[in-house]
Simulated assay, not measured.
Amino acid sequence: MSRRRSFETIQKSEYITISELVLLSGLRYSTLKYYTEEGMLPFHQEDIRMTRRYRRVATLERIKEIQSLKEKGLTIREIKEKLSSDSGEKSD
């Protein structure tokens, strides 16, 4: 079992875990997991059994974009289409 990293360390890290993303974003774990599974949050994963790692800055920006689009009344499907047309990014 690994030690938890300090909040300061998390804020300076290039890559963070989903649990650390919960701390930084204020969103629920289940929401972030859903966004990931829907392909809305790109991640890096060395092996299928390894922890998913998210680029801290890019992922927090993406979450803000998703939240903004939700506030405008877009559905998840519409948000996914908008995100893919804007960036063309895919998960690893």
Rank of each mutant, 00 (worst) to 15 (best):
S25A: 07
E14L: 11
L24E: 06
L23Y: 10
L41Y: 04
I63N: 04
K33A: 08
T17A: 00
L60K: 05
G26L: 08
G39V: 03
E37L: 10
V57Y: 10
E65T: 13
R62M: 07
E61Y: 13
S25T: 04
T9D: 15
L21T: 00
D47Y: 13
M50L: 13
R28V: 02
S6Y: 14
Y35D: 00
A58W: 08
K64I: 07
R62A: 05
K64Q: 13
I63H: 00
M40W: 04
Q67S: 15
E65H: 13
I16T: 03
L23T: 11
F7P: 10
Y34H: 10
T9A: 15
A58T: 10
E65P: 02
I18Y: 00
I63W: 01
H44P: 05
Q67C: 14
T31E: 05
S13R: 04
M50N: 15
G26T: 05
L32H: 01
R56M: 00
E65W: 14
K12G: 07
R28Y: 09
K12N: 12
Y34Q: 09
T9F: 15
Y54C: 00
L32I: 06
T51H: 08
I48G: 03
T17W: 03
F7H: 13
Q11S: 13
K33D: 09
R28E: 08
V22E: 06
E20L: 04
E20K: 04
L27C: 14
L41C: 04
E14V: 14
R5L: 09
Q45N: 05
L21F: 01
S13T: 02
R53A: 02
S6Q: 11
S30I: 11
Y34W: 11
Y15G: 06
E46N: 10
E46W: 09
V22H: 02
R53E: 08
E46P: 03
E38Q: 14
Y34D: 03
R62H: 04
Y54T: 01
Y34L: 09
V22S: 04
R55G: 02
L60F: 08
R53G: 05
T31S: 13
E61V: 08
T31A: 10
T51W: 04
K64V: 07
L24A: 06
L21Y: 03
I48E: 11
E37W: 09
G26W: 09
R49Y: 14
H44M: 08
E46R: 11
V57C: 03
S6F: 15
S30K: 13
F43C: 06
P42D: 00
I63K: 04
Q45K: 09
R3E: 14
I10F: 01
E14G: 08
E38F: 12
R3P: 00
A58R: 12
S30G: 03
Q45V: 06
I10L: 01
Q11F: 12
F43H: 07
R53H: 09
I48R: 14
S13Y: 02
V22P: 01
T36G: 02
I16K: 05
R28L: 10
F7Y: 12
V57D: 10
Y29V: 01
S25H: 05
T59H: 00
L23F: 08
E14H: 11
T51V: 10
R4V: 09
R52D: 06
S6W: 14
E37A: 08
Q45P: 00
I48A: 11
L27K: 14
Y35E: 04
L23C: 10
R62N: 05
I63G: 03
